[in-house]
Every structure is written in C-alpha cells, then in structure tokens.
Write a protein that binds this DNA or RNA. Structure first.
Length: 588
RNA sequence: GCCCUCGUAGCUCAAUGGACAGAGCGAUGGCCUUCUAAGCCAAAGGUUGCAGGUUCGAUUCCUGCCGAGGGCGCCA
C-alpha cells in the first residue's frame, strides 16, 4: 500500500549511491522489519556494497554495507511520515509513524471493501484447466485437492488482475468408461441409478474391474464396444450418453456445493475424431511413426530433436488397434484452447505430478509440429493425496475416501462443535454454520501446503478444527462481526488515532496492509499457499488484538478508531477467504 | 539404467539469496463476572539428511552421496 513512499525513498537512495560512486542498477528489495514489533520497511545495502567491492577490490562487504546504510540514513534525514530511521548491520530501517499511516490503511480498506487487494487489470488472459473428473467413477478426496487448487488459483489470478478462463476437461470416454458400460450391459442392463448416484457409479466401476478379471471374453467384448461407439451404433452410444449424464449431474452437484464454476467445458469424446485425424497428419509429416498393426503410432521425440539423451523418450499417440488414448486427445485439445481463445497468454494445466512427463512429451511434440502457441502452455504439477501408510487413493482398488462421505462427516462435526460452543443458535442458522465451517475445514488444508508436498489424509486431523485451520480464520471473522453487530448505527468517521497504538493494533494494521502483496505473490508463483498463510496470520493478528484490546468498552476516541479497525479486519479476512472459496460466516 | 519431486522442532508444515529459521498439532503451566474459550498468554522443543562448491551472505542456487516417493512404447 505504500508504493509511493517507497518509490520516493528509493529515488533518493539511488541519488545517494550515485554520489558515492557506487554502481547500483537493481531495484531495492523492501521487507518488513523483523524483531522490532514496530511497523516499518527495511532494505539492505549488501548488494550495493558488493558491487562497490567489485569496483575496488579491497572492500569488506558487511562493513561497507553498514557504512552505506549509515550514509544513506544521514542523507535521507527524516522522510515525511517516518518517526525513526536507523542503520543496523548493513540494513536501513525506516519506522512509520504508525498513527499517521494506520488511518490510511483502515480508511483504504473500508473504502475499497470487497475490492481491497485487487490488482490492476493486466489485460492478459490465462486459462486454468482443472478438476478433469472421469465419468463413471466417484469423486474422492484426491480429486478435491485438484478442484480446490484450481479454483483458488483461478480466483487469486483473477483478483490479481488476470483475465481468467476456468476450464474443465471431462474424461467421458476411453477404455475405463466402456469397461463400465460393458459391465452395466452384462449385469445391470436397464437399471436406473439409486438416489446416491455417484457412489453407485463408483461401486459399479470397481465391480466392472473385478468382473473383467474373471471374464476371459471381456477384453474382446469391450474392444467391440469401442468400435460400435465409433461407428455411431445407436444402442451403445445411447447407453453411453445416458450413463455419462448421470455422472455429469453428480459432478455439477458437487461443484455447486463446493462453490466452483467453469467458463468452458471440454470433453474427451469430442476429440476422438479430430485426434485421430491429427495423428494421421503427424504420420504424413514424418513426425509420428506408424508401427500398426504390429505396434502403436509413436513419436520418438529425442530422435526428432537429434538428441542423444533419453529426456523425452517415446510418446504413444494411437494404439495399435486404432483406438485413441489420452495423448491423442491432448494433442488436439491443447491446440483447441488457443483456437477458442486466440488472445491466451498462458494455458495452465493443473494436473497431478504423475503426468509431468506426459505433458512434457505432448508440448514438445506440438512444438516439433510447429504449433508455436504451445510455448505458452504450462503444466502445474501437484502432489497427490495419500492415505496413511502411503497408500494411493485408487477407484479401482477401492482405497478411497469418497468426497460425499468426507463432506458429511465434516459438516456433522462442525454442527456438533457449534452446538457445544454456541447453544443459542436457531436451527436454520446452525445448519448454515455447519455447512460453512465443515466445507471450509476440508478445503483449507488441501491448499495450505505447497503443492509439491504429498498430502496424507487421516480422519482425525482432517476433522480437527483447532489451530491453523479454516474454522480458526472463520472464527476471527465471527468475532469481528460480533463486535460490529453490537454497534448501533454507522461506523464513526475516519480519524487518526488519538491514543498510542497498542503493539497488537500495529501488527494487525500491518497485516491488513500486506494483503495486496500476498495476492500478487500468490498469483505470480501460482501458489495458493500465499493466501492461506496470509489469511491465517491475519486471523491470528486479529485474535491477539481481540484479546489485548477492548473495543466497545474503550474510551470514546479509542473506541472509534478500533471499531473501524475491526471493520477493516473483518473485510480483509472475508476477502482472503473468498479467494480460497471458503465462506466467512457471520456467526458460529 | 534414465528422468522428476521431496528431506527443516516428537508430528504436520512455513520461511521473495539477507538480520536471531517461524507457525500449528502434541506435551507442561496459566486465563471465561470484559466485545463468542472453535480463543488468548507463558515456558519447552533445531548440527535445516550428509559432504563439498558458488556468494559479502545459503534452509533457499550448483555438484556428489544417503533416505523417501513418483514416472519411463499401446493407463489416465
């Protein structure tokens, strides 16, 4: 929030360095001042000292850095709005007059409201592809990590200033799907799904795998279904379409529940035909090698690159029996995205880490084929969710925690805690609270760790709502709201604080002011972690303030300032939770 | 055999190359007659896997080793 102040000081620091004959071209890096418990900005002179050292050999860098910091402090004097300037161990620390800037932060937050933290529009477009559920299977906790990562990332990017396209790529075709249809025709023909559709779809998928193992004719029959589907056989296509829709309805229900929406849906089945045509083109152009019928159609990427290494290896783009596979579709989908959105600057794939090589291969193949825009494609690999004992969640093995079971348990747990801690609530409100808290609790931990870290799911910690968890943040929001509810009438007008600010007030204000940077950093690094961490730190700062600083009972001036501070804190907590797709309930 | 991640407190995780490596959980001791205790406070807990290198400065970058996981011609 203090770009202008920083900019002015930076200009003067550069003038000072130039006057000292110290070559320094880079920008200064600013951070907050550690240990001080006070509010300010800091920068170091090590880089400048190092470049001075390179110019004339004999300089001791730390010593020179301290000299430069001291000199800079002297040259700077006392800039407007700062109360103290010090040079410590090569650092220049500039302490704000907190009373002066605290009003600016609070007023700024309240004026911008839900837009506080929003970046300027970049006029750059990014597509975030995420979720990618497979029809005829059940959604489980592993899918939830992807959904949350993609959804939160899309929110953060949009808030940071990007034009965002939220894309979903539905796996509605392929061998697994036809396997399901095969089993359905054999053992459940004509059956309608029960109320619990997605669970039933998942159960039948596991059943299909089991039945296939005991059925020697199965593979051939499924292959026959493949060809009937391709030929447009009405019976097979009809059954496929009906059963597929059951899954899609279930997915949409889940998306509604989780508060996730998409701008664009792609379906694997749509790329069956164009994918095969593209493979033929690759064969004609000598990029793909056709080994049918003895082998598949392959792209020997390293060979085409003239490379001796095995970095890219071999991509199979069509099976020997002429059926398409994931790579077939992905080659055309990647191009289709740029056809649909010609102004796309980034095409981001949120897909788990096990497919890293696959995307490397697909992107490189398209590059070899001369499709230039593919250079804007990026795979964002995230680690999967395992069960304790490092057991991978697998629909086939049945080692999964169903999304709906997880949601039900979390909401029920949230209701139970709510009943214990706030018995006054009416039934309708209690139900809303239980949903808001239960859903928040399951979402937060999946995006609060770096996406390169494997997440382990266990019921006990998943249902622990204390400490660094969504309910803690929601609770801070509730407490802020609770104070403001007791205020009859409007907030008092903005005014500089007349009292000496409590350390907890300063820390809270500093955290509010830092939110926009957290948004920019999260967007720049494609990391939801920046926002989950900041939301937690903000809530922590508020809880500590709440504990140390009375608001409603404070004397008039103090009360007026703190009421506005509480309102600002409530706003920023809500903004942060909003980016994460987590509700900020008014009561708990 | 090749490629990619990860390794930080007992556990789960943070830390734009920068000052004294921080949180949560668990364990210990306190705080509800003040705005909701899903909270707060206090003390405890570390050779950042190991060894080198680059740098004024390395948890962060590079190399090697050790350990864990993942991927590698017809799964997605």
């Amino acid at each position: 929030m203090f770009e202008k102040e920083r900019g002015d000081i930076e200009t003067r620091l550069k003038e000072y360095l130039a006057g000292q004959n110290v070559p320094f071209e880079e920008d200064f890096k600013w951070s907050s001042i550690p240990f001080a418990g006070e509010w300010g900005i800091a920068t170091s002179f090590f880089q400048a000292a190092a470049s001075a050292a390179r110019a004339d050999q004999k300089v001791n860098v730390p010593q020179r850095a301290q000299e430069l910091a001291e000199g800079a402090a002297k040259a700077l004097g006392m800039p407007e709005g700062f109360g103290r300037v010090e040079a410590v161990r090569g650092y220049l620390n500039l302490y704000f007059v907190a009373s002066r800037y605290s009003q600016r932060v609070v007023d700024g937050v309240l004026a911008e409201g839900a837009d506080f933290g929003r970046g300027e529009r970049l006029n750059r477009r990014i597509m975030v592809e995420f979720s990618q559920p497979n029809t005829h299977k059940a959604l489980h906790v592993g899918h939830l990590r992807n959904m949350m990562l993609g959804a939160a990332l899309a929110n953060i990017l949009e808030f940071a200033g990007w034009d965002v396209v939220r894309a979903n790529y539905i796996g509605d075709f392929g061998k697994d799907v036809l396997k399901w249809v095969w089993n359905y025709r054999k053992h459940h023909n004509g059956e309608q799904p029960p109320e619990d559709v997605t669970r039933w779809m998942g159960d039948l998928y596991a059943e299909a795998n089991a039945n296939l193992e005991n059925d020697p004719a199965g593979e051939k029959e499924i292959e026959a279904l493949f060809h009937r589907w391709e030929a447009g056989d009405e019976e097979v296509v009809g059954q496929w379409r009906t059963t597929r829709q059951w899954s899609l309805d279930g997915f949409n229900q889940a998306y509604d529940l989780m508060g996730i929406r998409f701008d664009r849906f792609y379906y694997e089945s749509d790329f069956e035909k164009s994918g095969k045509e593209y493979v033929e083109e690759l064969i004609r152009r000598g990029i793909a090698r056709d080994e049918r019928p003895a082998g598949p159609v392959i792209v020997k990427i390293d060979e085409l690159l003239g490379s001796e290494t095995e970095e890219y290896r071999v991509l199979v783009v069509l099976r020997s029996d002429n059926t398409a596979l994931y790579a077939t579709w992905d080659l055309v989908l990647a191009q289709r995205k740029f056809k649909d959105y010609p102004d796309l600057d980034v095409s981001l794939y949120v897909v788990d880490v096990r497919q890293s090589q696959h995307f490397k291969q697909v992107f490189k193949t398209l590059e070899l084929a001369g499709f230039e825009p593919i250079k804007k494609a990026t795979h964002l690999p995230y680690e999967i969710v395992n069960l304790p004992g490092n057991i991978t969640m697998s629909s086939r093995e049945g080692t999964i925690v169903l999304l709906e079971d997880f949601i039900r348990e979390a909401v029920s747990r949230a209701r139970q805690v709510s009943e214990e801690s706030n018995p006054e609530l009416d039934e309708k409100t209690r139900a809303e609270v239980a949903w808001a808290v239960g859903l928040g609790a399951i979402k937060y931990p999946l995006i609060a760790r770096d996406h390169t870290k494997i997440a382990t799911f266990d019921w006990e910690s998943a249902l622990d709502f204390n400490g660094q968890a969504a309910p803690y943040i929601q609770y801070a929001h509730v407490r802020a709201n609770s104070i403001l509810r007791k205020l009859d009438g409007d907030l008092p007008p903005g005014a500089p604080p007349a009292h000496d600010l409590d350390l907890k007030e300063v820390a809270l204000i500093e955290s509010l002011a830092a939110f926009p940077q957290a948004v920019q950093r999260g967007a720049g690094e494609f990391r939801t972690l920046q926002i989950t961490n900041h939301a937690f730190e903000l809530a922590k700062a508020f809880n500590e303030f709440y504990n140390a600083c009375p608001v409603l009972n404070a004397e008039a001036d103090v009360r007026a300032f703190r009421l506005r501070l509480v309102a600002a804190a409530r706003q920023v907590i809500a903004n942060a939770l909003g980016l994460l797709g987590i509700q900020a309930p008014p009561v708990m």
